[in-house]
């Protein structure tokens, strides 16, 4: 293989570098810098002051929002992972190869299909006099308050993350070496024992990556907690929107965004080192 760095090689290598530096790394670095800027008379001034950081981190509502967002995203991750597992397990082990392919085909569609409109649909379904309560009333239950609750937020997060997490779990489970599972069963391990000490550990990396993506998506989403969760208290993404759109306080919004990025990096790093840690 020719491997020298000539015009031909550079033609293919450079576009992504140039584009990402200009429009991906550039914006992110500028946003970090912006968290130290000042706003005077509704105009942003480039500076290097800790004012925004002190202002934001000394406010109770910021930490309320922070803890609530971490709580919601964690809850969403646990619920989604647990609900996805039986489905992924079934798709990986209990259906034919072609059924599995079709199922993944079908799950990819909603992942790329307007999350916003799907959430609006849930809003209508879960409303006080919506479809869900009307159906529950047929069997003599309800009405339940589903909108503006944690339940509502979780339905929204599931709408966003469920297909992706099922796909990632299915892929990692179906890549397990089947002979490992058979060996465990031949050695007399029961179903649950096999599941717990062979199947889950072997698919650990994929399961954790699914959970990390679920956490990132939930943590950064504003639609579910706003429209279905009622935004009381607001989450960090909602705080960013309010601060940017209503208050014109871009530097303060940048503080929130930087805190979010640091949190996500910590979570992802911890989870991934957990995933690749050797079992003793």
């Amino acid at each position: 293989m020719k491997n020298k760095l000539d015009l031909y090689a550079l033609t293919w290598r450079m576009p992504v570098i140039v584009w990402q530096l200009l429009f991906f790394v550039g914006p992110l670095l500028f946003m970090i810098a912006m968290s130290f800027f000042l706003v005077k008379n509704y105009r942003m001034e480039e500076a290097f002051e800790m004012k925004n950081w002190i202002k934001m981190t000394s406010r109770g509502y910021f930490w309320d929002a922070y803890l609530y967002t971490v709580f919601l995203a964690s809850l969403s991750t646990v619920v989604t992972s647990l609900l996805a597992f039986p489905a992924a397990y079934g798709l990986a082990f209990k259906v034919s190869e072609s059924t599995r392919r079709w199922a993944i085909f079908l799950l990819i569609i909603p992942f790329f299909t307007s999350y916003l409109v799907r959430t609006f649909s849930w809003y209508v379904i879960l409303a006080e006099s919506g479809v869900a309560n009307a159906m529950l009333a047929y069997i003599g239950l309800g009405p339940f308050k589903m909108l503006n609750t944690i339940f509502g937020s979780i339905v929204g997060y599931l709408t966003l993350t469920f297909p992706l997490v099922i796909i990632l779990q299915t892929l990692s489970l179906s890549n397990i070496d089947r002979s490992l599972i058979e060996a465990a069963q031949n050695l007399g391990a029961g179903r649950l024992k096999t599941l717990w000490s062979v199947t889950i550990p072997s698919a650990k990396v994929g399961l954790i990556i699914g959970a990390v993506f679920c956490f990132i998506l939930s943590f950064g989403d504003f639609v579910a907690p706003y429209y279905l969760g009622g935004s009381k208290p607001p989450t960090l993404p909602i705080l960013i929107i309010d601060t940017t759109k209503a208050g014109q306080q871009w530097p303060r919004a940048a503080v929130v965004a930087v805190v979010m990025m640091l949190t996500l990096m910590t979570v992802a790093y911890t989870a991934i080192s957990l995933a690749y840690r050797k079992r003793r």
Partner: peptide, 10 residues
Amino acid sequence: IILALAMLAW
């Protein structure tokens, strides 16, 4: 949401 803010500012 983070990219949105970063892109808007940049």
